[in-house]
């Protein structure tokens, strides 16, 4: 069995988990939710094995030039999915809000599908600029940060879907229907904040490790290239988000929107810069 087949199994597991989460919202059957969570966990464990195996395979193919599977667009998209699951499972363990899965798993699933269907998955040797341990630290911290923002985005979408109905909803009776299955908006708001609280320090570390690497490779820790600048834009947005919570009127709906914009900026930083703009990170599109 090679890592490619394991990644296929991962995709199937995430697909199954997503469908089961939808089924849970529709049927309100707790067993379905449990199976969905177990499917996500199984997918995550398979993917972890697959990442390890791909790492090992790189040594088989490239000999001493083997490296962690974090070096091109395909590998980064796969790692993005893995990071999302990691942060999601941690949040699930803490909050036990099973419906969140229905809004987070699709992001991971879509990443896996995109990577496997249209990205170049061969294990190629690295150009000299990428041959550095900083690469591993930089990619891991950045992507765990991105994953925190992805989970916050999923939660924010749920919040925005629910809040409108909730405000119109009268009486003490709990809300019925699909939206009634969503966690209370207060909890969604809190989860949004918590996920960003995890993502923000990781993004900070990602920017710092990137700066340190740039310094050791090129002699400048900051050169305002588009990737760097966009990571700073994302950092500014979430910094604004965190501070906005301390002022009145910036919790709830506005915070959720800020989280949605933040994730859009994150995606642009991650993909848009490579696909649309150019710069030092252009090899990331290989």
């Amino acid at each position: 069995m090679d890592s490619g087949q394991l990644f296929n199994l991962t995709t199937i597991a995430y697909f199954a988990a997503m469908v089961l989460f939808f089924a849970y919202i529709a049927t309100k059957n707790k067993t379905v939710a449990l199976i969905a969570t177990l499917a996500s966990l199984a997918g995550f464990l398979i993917q972890t094995t697959a990442l390890g195996l791909r790492w090992y395979e790189s040594y088989q193919i490239l000999g001493a030039d083997g490296r962690a599977p974090l070096t091109n667009l395909y590998e980064s998209v796969v790692f993005f999915a893995w990071s999302i699951l990691l942060i999601y499972l941690l949040m699930d363990w803490k909050y036990k809000q099973r419906t969140i899965g229905a809004f987070v798993l699709p992001i991971a699933l879509f990443s896996m599908l995109w990577a496997q269907m249209s990205l170049h998955s061969s294990i190629d040797p690295l150009i000299p600029a990428l041959q550095s341990n900083w690469l591993t630290y930089h990619v891991i911290t950045c992507f765990l940060g991105y994953a925190g923002f992805a989970v916050a985005f999923g939660v924010s979408v749920m919040y925005l879907l629910k809040i409108g109905k909730e405000e119109k909803h009268q009486g003490d009776k709990p809300m019925g229907g699909i939206l009634g299955m969503f966690p209370p908006t207060k909890i969604l708001d809190d989860m949004n904040y918590k996920a960003i609280m995890i993502g923000f320090p990781l993004l900070t570390l990602g920017i710092i490790t990137g700066a340190a690497w740039a310094y050791y490779a090129w002699g400048t820790y900051w050169s305002w290239d588009p990737k760097e600048t966009w990571s700073l834009i994302v950092w500014f947005l979430y910094a604004a988000f965190l501070h906005a919570r301390f002022t009145r009127g910036w919790v709830g709906r506005r915070a959720a929107w800020l989280s949605v914009f933040g994730f859009a900026a994150t995606l642009f930083c991650y993909l848009g810069v490579n696909l649309v703009l150019s710069g030092l990170h252009s090899y990331g599109s290989g």
Binding site: T229, L232, I233, F236, L237, A239, A240, H243, A265
Partner: peptide, 9 residues
């Protein structure tokens, strides 16, 4: 902070 984010684009 938002102004810095916006103008940096």
């Amino acid at each position: 902070v938002l102004l810095l984010a916006l103008t940096s684009i």
